[in-house]
Design a protein around this nucleic acid. Structure first.
Lengths: 187, 187
DNA sequence: GCAGTGATGTCAGTTGCTGACGCAAGGGGT
DNA sequence: ACCCCTTGCGTCAGCAACTGACATCACTGC
């Protein structure tokens, strides 16, 4: 038998989301989260570099999905390739709407958390732009498309999370892409 | 004669930017910033709600400029109105390129600072979207245009700050708007 | 067996941040 | 002149976030 219960990291993440949703992020101490997971505060900070990071822990896996999606696109143009990748990510997120809504609710209550999420997405933006460049698109276009693409995705995500039984995320993404196209077509 | 030297807030902001740029954000304590400004740590936190906020103090004035810019646009369409407002803001920022570059350098070294800036801009996005709605544009279009508009602006800002003597910020903004139009035209 | 590894506990310390209270200059009213 | 209120700051005590150093002990490979 192991000396400690397994997956302390997973228990910490679960306890954190529950306590944050119940009592609020600021009103919950790391000590309480750690105690709920059956470990020490010090162990919490070994797994997550700060109190906020526990809410963004599994985002790295999602970034990989996103980059793979870009890599497997057909190479039509930068916007279309990114659209394909966003569709793949949308499919990945589709079954987790309630969990994501819960998480979004916690994040929306705190400016620092909102910022952390946006910073993480900005990092993704840079990564996507680099992959687009490697696929042969010019750098300026890659940067711009990555940033605009994420603006579109955030917007679609907001719409998706705002309803419990509306269209799937991918449909919102498609709608937003079409809207942007329409808005800029007259230029 | 006053009991204390005037403009403690201004001295704090100046000392903070200098020390952050010199030693790094994390390696500078609030005590040091306060001492450099000739006040106490407690006074620092009376003027700025936390250590980060001192870098974003005068952003609120800029938001007002932005909203006024939208309000004074011609009411052509949402994208054009926002474009007009961004041009006004660009003119306001044009003479401060070096100071903004210095500030951007500090912010880029710290994830939390990056997030704080993005969160602040997200707040602006919401405010702009509301003004656009009040001008009669449908809500979904207003949200989307505000988010995409800021993606465009951030991108233009990056390009502008990356060179010391390139085109003015407003020119970069126009270029980015045209690029987005071209990328989505084929849809 | 036995040394090495890895995840955790323990403890002490620094820093960010807040509440409560006190202090003194300036500005009003009477 | 007198009083009172406001303003801007200092002082002190205390909590919570975070970190470094070191100890512990099941497990692993030899």
């Amino acid at each position: 038998m192991a000396r400690w219960a397994e997956d302390a990291r997973g228990r910490l993440a679960a306890s954190a989301l529950e306590l944050f949703a119940e009592r609020g992020f600021a009103a919950t101490t790391v000590d309480e989260v750690a105690a709920a997971a059956g470990v020490t505060q010090r162990t919490f900070f070994r797994h997550f570099r700060d109190k906020e990071e526990v809410l963004f822990a599994d985002d790295d896996r999602l970034l990989q999905v996103l980059l793979d999606g870009v890599g497997r696109a057909e190479g039509e143009d930068a916007e279309a390739d990114l659209g394909h990748a966003l569709a793949v990510v949308s499919a990945e997120l589709e079954p987790r709407r309630e969990q994501l809504r819960r998480r979004a609710g916690v994040i929306a209550t705190d400016v620092a958390l909102t910022g952390r999420e946006l910073a993480k997405q900005a990092g993704w933006t840079a990564a996507v732009a680099q992959v687009l460049q490697e696929r042969g698109y010019p750098g300026t276009q890659a940067d711009l498309m990555a940033q605009v693409g994420f603006a579109v995705f955030r917007n679609a995500m907001d719409r998706w999370l705002s309803q419990s039984d509306g269209p799937p995320l991918a449909a919102h993404v498609e709608q937003c892409r079409a809207d942007v196209g329409a808005a800029f077509r007259s230029r």
